[in-house]
Simulated scan of single mutants.
Amino acid sequence: MDKETFLNIIKGELIVSCQALEDEPLHGPEIMAKMGLAAKIGGAVAIRANSKEDIIAIRKETGLPTIGIVKREYRDSDVYITPTFKEVQELIESGTDVITLDATLRKRPQGINFRELVSFIRKNSNCLIMGDVSTVEEGKKAVLDGCDLISTTMSGYTPYSRHLDGPDFELIKELTSSINIPVIAEGRISTPEDAVKALLFGSHSVVVGTAITRPQEITKSFVKKIHHARKIV
């Protein structure tokens, strides 16, 4: 899918992140594919997904465009979202429309340079490239390094970014006013009102994950508030 078509599809719309790690009950391509289908039926226009297997299953089940990542930890770095060429190659093989890279300023595993990954993707695929950032500085650098889109996903996940209970609306505003590529709002967007606010602040589209597709976390939030209310009654 070409860049203009993809951006038109997602503009002003909801993208749902369908992810479940190995230690979570819903882990597995078949379950994530059904989660993606449920999101499609609900009106999602694209799916963000983790792992080659999940992406292939979700694309087959839904027919929706995908934003792909591979989460993998390495001992020599805190970067875990598509950190090396290995993960990039897996995403190319998945057929995903967008490859997402951690675009923070932190050191990557194996001494790999961010621009090297961007160059590899350009030479070996037609995938768009999204940079997950935590600050405006990182967003500006990701633009210079060749990203097609920027996401606010990493706000609160780097030691030098804002650590908030809710979405980083300030970062959304700062990025949309200072860079010339689409900004995707993602991170702690928990309600429809949050999503609308992110769009009003200039984001091209909105990604929601935990609040829709992680029942254990949704349950935990209810239990936490109920227990807190019990203590003060």
Rank of each mutant, 00 (worst) to 15 (best):
D2M: 00
K3V: 00
E4M: 05
T5G: 01
L7C: 05
K11A: 05
L14F: 03
C18K: 07
A20G: 10
D23P: 09
E24N: 12
P25W: 11
H27I: 00
E30I: 09
A33C: 11
G36H: 10
A38T: 11
A38F: 14
A39K: 04
V45G: 09
A46M: 02
E53L: 10
A57D: 07
T62A: 06
L64C: 04
G68H: 07
G68A: 09
G68V: 07
I69F: 00
V70F: 08
Y74A: 05
R75Q: 13
V79L: 09
I81V: 15
F85G: 00
Q89P: 04
L91E: 10
I92D: 05
I92H: 02
G95S: 05
T96M: 00
V98Y: 00
D102T: 07
D102H: 03
R108A: 05
P109Q: 07
I112G: 01
R115H: 15
E116M: 04
L117M: 11
I121A: 02
R122W: 13
N124T: 05
V136W: 08
V136D: 13
V136E: 15
E137K: 12
G139K: 02
K140D: 09
K140M: 12
K141I: 11
G146E: 09
C147D: 12
S151C: 14
T152D: 13
S155C: 10
G156H: 12
Y157I: 02
P159F: 15
Y160V: 03
L164I: 01
D165P: 04
P167K: 00
P167T: 01
P167S: 04
L171H: 03
L175A: 09
T176H: 12
P182N: 05
G187K: 04
I189T: 00
P192T: 04
A195Q: 03
S203A: 15
S205M: 03
S205Y: 06
S205R: 02
V208T: 11
V208W: 07
A211Q: 06
I212F: 15
Q216D: 15
Q216K: 12
E217L: 14
T219F: 15
S221Q: 11
V223W: 15
K224T: 10
K225G: 05
I232K: 13
